[in-house]
Design a protein around this nucleic acid. Structure first.
Lengths: 306, 306
DNA sequence: GTAGTTCATCGGCAAAACCTATGCTTACCC
DNA sequence: GGGTAAGCATAGGTTTTGCCGATGAACTAC
């Protein structure tokens, strides 16, 4: 058997009021309740807490005095815990863990965080970059409570809200024969060597684009790095397929490259927000989602315009 | 309605075990109890704490993770409070508030503290010096839980345990005609001027000694300071009556004086321990009392021999 | 498909907390 | 000194809470 926070509250109230009756009024309970709580604490602690003065209240014993200070500390600590919880639940301040698909994280997160910081300065986002297969697992394991991702093979337990339709662009060397076209068709590319971005889910996605058209690509290289694809393409090792587009036309080694839209209509793919179906969102997550809804499309358009 | 420490215990156990069932075994309660506790916390905090994986346990949400750390802190804090209480009740370590009659405090407390420190090194005594009237009040107000005092007019609510019988000594100037006697009678003194130690209770005590003998003293001076009495007596302003005897024969100004026992049998007065009737002693107080029983007589004898 | 695992819910029961009423002790006042 | 007021403790009865066993629901794994 042990003590409860309520016992401590009645005890400290009695110490403050200097009487059981006074404490009972402070705590809005009956006088016997306070009396019993004090007796209970004296029992479990094995220490006399108060000296009873008949008809004129109580005094703390030396031991009671020390325990009263400790009890007050514990109660304020408990109060802080409640405050923390309330802050997490309702407040728009504190840390918010957000997952994001690693490839486009540097394209969208900085802008989103900037907007969020202006709308909700007290929210501090902790970004977690993962590939498309790790993101649902991160949500399930509670590493983050919301994620920005593509709707590629999302499991049933993930709720997805599409925000932006993302087209496929073809990356070509700057001097490639197709680089000046306004659009290219899959059939134009089938014979060319492909530098494939090979990440979980996205790899299959690109291949299925060809399969739906009854074509099979000619895979020359596979890499999991966005910038590696661009470097290989720029240097003439093949063409690349991308959803994310950089605002400039150079690979990291300075070699120029071109980006041309794919002309065929395809099954659309979307960038959007993913959360667990079953969980209740915190207010911070809701605020983040609202910011994404309002600003994510514009952020991507601005990139395209630039 | 609020949360209890038990709720937090079940919650943190579930976080550690990664499952409700595991937590129920850790806490030796049924699985529904843990389940209900978590649901209750999620309700009062308004935050989802866990992500439920059907058939394979739980994961903390980001918010749950933060609250879990806070809950663990609070629980260890609560555990410390219990430890403190247990230490106060049973342990022989910590602070012990002790009252002592101001006049003889410098005669007995240093020696007592030295013996106590060797027997119970972890007990730290905080001495509180008061006059005989303030001591019972200090006990009642919880300023200290035990006191070393005389049994002079002690109220009914004070329990007194006599340890040493203290005789009255007569202080005389070194060259006084009675200074060489082995003992003096009250009748020898009645006409002499008296330098009276005038503290609450003790003043009346000295006067009643004369009254019982049918005599009335000739009060020349009154002072509340032990050393002031000695100084006045040494310089020839009268004789003094004392229960406490210094180990030397000089007043603070260097003037010599003599100390002679009073010969008459009188109502005895005792030095001993005072506590409130109704309170239960802590183990530290009991240890202090035992130390006093064993060493206080010897300490006073040694003083007399020296 | 079947067995195993795990969490949530339900109904009953026991413990605890609470309240009203009362008793007991002391302080205060005429 | 007796009466009154103040204040804590106890008693009895009611409500609330906590706990358990059983059951249901949802998923995994073979």
């Amino acid at each position: 058997m042990n003590y409860t926070l309520k016992h401590l509250r009645y005890f400290t109230a009695a110490a403050e009021a200097g009487s059981v009756t006074g404490a009972s009024e402070l705590c809005h309970v009956s006088q016997p309740s306070v009396s019993a709580a004090i007796a209970h604490l004296e029992d479990v602690f094995g220490v006399q807490l108060f000296i009873r003065h008949h008809a004129q209240g109580l005094s703390l014993t030396p031991a009671g005095n020390r325990l009263c200070k400790a009890a007050r500390d514990l109660l304020t600590h408990a109060e802080e815990l409640s405050q923390d919880a309330a802050g997490l639940a309702e407040g728009l301040s504190g840390d918010l863990d957000v997952g994001c698909f690693v490839t486009f994280a540097p394209f969208v997160l900085p802008g989103l965080l900037r907007v969020l910081a202006s709308e909700h300065p007290a929210i501090h986002v902790r970004p977690h970059e993962d590939d498309l297969r790790a993101l649902p697992e991160g949500l399930r394991r509670g590493r983050y409570e919301i994620a920005v991702t593509y709707d590629l093979n999302l499991p049933q337990d993930i709720a997805f809200e599409a925000l932006v339709t993302v087209p496929i662009h073809v990356l070509l060397p700057a001097r490639h024969r197709l680089a000046k076209r306004r659009a290219v068709r899959l059939a134009d590319l089938a014979e060319e060597p492909l530098v494939l971005l090979s990440l979980p889910e996205s790899r299959n996605h690109f291949l299925s684009v060809f399969a739906e058209a009854g074509l099979e690509p000619n895979i020359a290289y596979e890499t999991s790095s966005f910038e590696m694809v661009r470097g290989l393409v720029a240097n003439g090792y093949g063409y690349g397929l991308m959803h994310s587009r950089a605002p400039h036309q150079r690979a990291l080694d300075g070699t120029p490259l071109a980006s041309v839209p794919l002309s065929e209509p395809r099954r659309e793919m979307h960038m959007g927000l993913a959360r667990l179906q079953t969980t209740r969102a915190t207010r911070m997550a809701l605020a983040f989602a609202e910011t994404c809804r309002r600003h994510l499309p514009a952020l991507l358009d601005a990139r395209d315009a630039g």
